[in-house]
Design a protein around this nucleic acid. Structure first.
Lengths: 238, 238
DNA sequence: GTCTATATCCCGATAGAC
DNA sequence: GTCTATCGGGATATAGAC
């Protein structure tokens, strides 16, 4: 990934490539700045400097500050949707929940600025995302909630409130991206290593599965109903 | 702060009362605006309008935008510290953890704007709070972490990473204040009722205690080591 | 297509009238 | 003490030179 803007000679082919390249520079820089200062607190000037381009160039490529912001939000929602798998009541709860936690964790830490951009938008009352939240996302939550309830009816997990459970997974995973400054300050680390991420992922999976009484899926075998089985991924305690 | 009877000069008293009253108006309004738009995105003009005072009045009372912001952060840290109880290894894990979750939940929902103000500060890289995070708060976390580890050594709970556990409790409770817009959009509610709060609190306590394998403290009785006892506060499932 | 120069407005902060 | 008027600077956005 080159970090310098392309202002080279306009040969027919490289024009489009240059434009695409500069757009990517702007989007990456804008995600950082918007995440850090929020919509109003971010200035086009600051975004331009972060992208090493003139301010007018940013507005020329993106049209307006608001259009740029909306485009970034849409990109983040797209990433989000990419891991919102469909699940059915026939699936194994343990597998689905661990995969859900793992993917959410990876998304947050693969795109920390996007995650913080989203967080800042919600923190400010979600002026640009209300429709998405109470429409598309709400439907997604409701459909998964129904599956969780059916799992509980079949005795595959405890009858917990499925919406609170989804919020628990969202909040506890996103925390490591959104509150990174706090996490690093308290742990004294400079960054979270791959091992840390793996450790946290296993910790959260363990707590959620055990906390919800999810039975291990063992085909052709009876499952003990009141024992707390040792899970295969007991987290290290530091 | 004196509470003098002073009947001689009521005008002098009402002056101070007016000042105190206006300061409270400004602090409340500023907390809302800063929480919504972040430090840079908030304008003194907007704060003044929210407090129904002239802009110059806000700066006259508070000195500067930054002084006002720092004062609000300090107030929130003070509220925070007020519930950071000391705990010892002799205390009952179940009681301590449930009380911790309950208090944290109440704090977040009693002061949602303060919670969001803090969140915005962390989201932006904690420029004003880094010292607090890597100093006072870090020490607090370490001391509690050591107690959790000792509990695990005594077999009172599973040997989970205590710092991840603290982050889990923080994130999952704060979520309902910081991401209120998302929670309300998805649940379709206009506000979270007292019953909702109680339900969420019990849900989180249940998951954390069961997920960490916290044994119920029963003095003078042996504790079954591998059974998952039914907790007294099994959450309703909706 | 790109970037300089500029238009218009709002920012935080202050001086000075009352 | 309170508030109007204003300052210098920076905001978004655009017009126009190259």
């Amino acid at each position: 990934m080159t970090s310098s803007p392309c202002t080279a000679k306009p040969s027919a082919i490289s024009k489009e490539a240059t434009r695409a390249h500069n757009e990517q520079l702007i989007l990456a820089a804008a995600e950082r700045i918007f995440a850090r200062h929020g919509y109003r607190g971010a200035s086009v000037q600051a975004i331009a400097e972060a992208a090493r381009l003139p301010k007018s160039n940013v507005l020329y490529y993106m049209g307006s500050k608001q259009a740029l912001y909306v485009r970034l939000l849409a990109r983040m929602m797209q990433r989000w949707n990419a891991l919102l798998d469909d699940i059915s009541v026939e699936d194994d709860p343990a597998e689905v929940l661990t995969a859900f936690i793992r993917r959410k964790m990876q998304l947050s830490l693969r795109h920390p600025e996007g995650s913080r951009l989203f967080a800042a938008e919600i923190l400010g009352g979600a002026p640009f995302l209300q429709e998405y939240l109470s429409g598309e996302l709400r439907d997604w939550v409701e459909s998964r909630a129904r599956v969780f309830e059916q799992w509980a009816e079949r005795g595959l997990m405890d009858p917990v409130n499925p919406v609170w459970l989804i919020f628990l997974i969202w909040s506890s995973t996103q925390h490591y991206a959104d509150f990174e400054a706090q996490v690093l300050g308290i742990t004294g680390k400079e960054t979270l290593s791959e091992d840390d991420i793996e450790d946290i992922t296993r910790f959260l999976s363990r707590i959620v599965l055990k906390g919800c009484g999810v039975r291990q899926h063992k085909k052709g075998r009876d499952v003990q109903s009141d024992a707390a089985p040792d899970l295969p991924f007991v987290a290290a305690s530091d």
